[in-house]
Design a protein around this nucleic acid. Structure first.
Lengths: 220, 220
DNA sequence: TAGATTGTTAATCGATTAACAATC
DNA sequence: TAGATTGTTAATCGATTAACAATC
């Protein structure tokens, strides 16, 4: 009866940020922290931090603040990072390979269990010890191995048909790096990473430099 | 006297999306389009589209809509994509290499003019015909070549010191892929691409599946 | 001209911030 | 207990949507 309030996407996007800062704090052996201290660390207002966290429960304690380890654990649970998610990469271009070589995912509960491509020259190779298979085998592989997440690192043209196969293979979510808006059933979340869009936004900020040459050195 | 209204970040983030769809429309030889048609294409409301565009000027025409090519050109100008931006990549790991190999940037006004690393084994190599140089030479190189954008693809530990060098070398903006919040002067925009955060958000949506098993097939 | 569709103002909605009583 | 800080309600701010007069 608690978990039914719809959490806004703005909040969801901040959760991984909280998580990262808390991870740092644990490394630095900080035991407790107040919303005010977190505020000056992260840059969100203390009020927002308390609001955000209270969407999920009262993790703090009046007069004390938040227990760093405890809060970290709670956020991990909220984010679903207390389990494992099997992933496959479809498309073995630069980005696909970069992700495959990023061994951290394997250690942190996101094992990449297979890679797929249509190029016969690449099929059969191993990248960071992950086998590259023929895309024709994708659907069967997904079902047999109960893969949770499909990563699309193909070009735009291929992306939608790959998405269709991922859906057919019953993945639970799609991490899409192709610059195309995929059509998939609403029940399957898609997270788009449109890297080049962020470069465009950067350039916008360079051109329309709001902050250029501030007279005051300012707050920080 | 016109360009002084502060454009919200929400709008800026949508501009590259408009741009992408318009690019497609040009390819498909579509000459004119109404905000309503754009709406059903992109998924934003027609009202929002008109509001967004009118932040920058009246690009449409009553009773007609928007000229696709004209609007595309306007958005390109707004985004500053009518000029060239020299970039360097600092950090030649998987991601740095992937970006270097992504030749599209070179063709589309974002030439990568140098790469930098601290690993002597890598210094001197060429990746996609881009020379890898010693990071000690970074500041001088930036100033001599009037580099516009610095891309940080190092690990977290090195990122801040790289950012300091980029600032010293007078880049105009920083594209940061390290999961760390950089401290730089306010006059230099930073665009963070925290890829793993988006994976975390995806997992959140998988776990808390709001849309799971909708009874209706629905709108689209 | 009549019809279509913009540009723009007003209304609504949602997210952020402020304030403070509850409580450790 | 007194002080600190949360949890939570209320106020504010900003962004989105609706509506419609202007106009091509």
């Amino acid at each position: 009866m608690k978990e039914k309030v719809k959490i806004s996407n703005a909040v969801v996007k901040r959760l991984p940020i909280y998580r990262r800062y808390l991870e740092e704090l644990i490394k630095d052996n900080v035991e407790r922290i107040s919303s005010n201290e977190l505020s000056s660390l992260i840059g969100f207002t203390a009020s927002q931090i308390r609001q955000d966290l209270n969407n999920f429960g009262g993790f703090g304690q009046q007069g004390y603040g938040y227990n760093v380890k405890g809060l970290y654990k709670e956020i991990n649970t909220i984010l679903g990072l207390d389990r494992e998610y099997k992933m496959v990469i479809v498309g073995t271009g630069n980005l696909g390979q970069a992700l495959a070589n990023y061994s951290k995912y394997h250690k942190e509960g996101f094992p990449i269990v297979g890679m797929f491509d249509i190029n016969p020259k690449i099929i059969g190779l191993r990248i960071n010890d992950i086998e590259v298979m023929d895309s024709d085998l994708l659907v069967d592989f997904l079902r047999e191995n109960h893969v949770d997440i499909g990563i699309i690192t193909t070009d735009r043209a291929a992306a939608q048909s790959v998405a269709d196969k991922l859906v057919e293979g019953r993945v639970r979510g799609i991490w899409n790096f192709a610059t195309v808006d995929l059509k998939v059933p609403k029940s399957i979340p898609v997270e788009n990473v449109h890297v080049t869009d962020t470069l465009n936004a950067l350039v916008y900020h360079i051109i329309h430099n709001d902050q250029a040459e501030m007279p005051e050195a300012g707050t920080e």
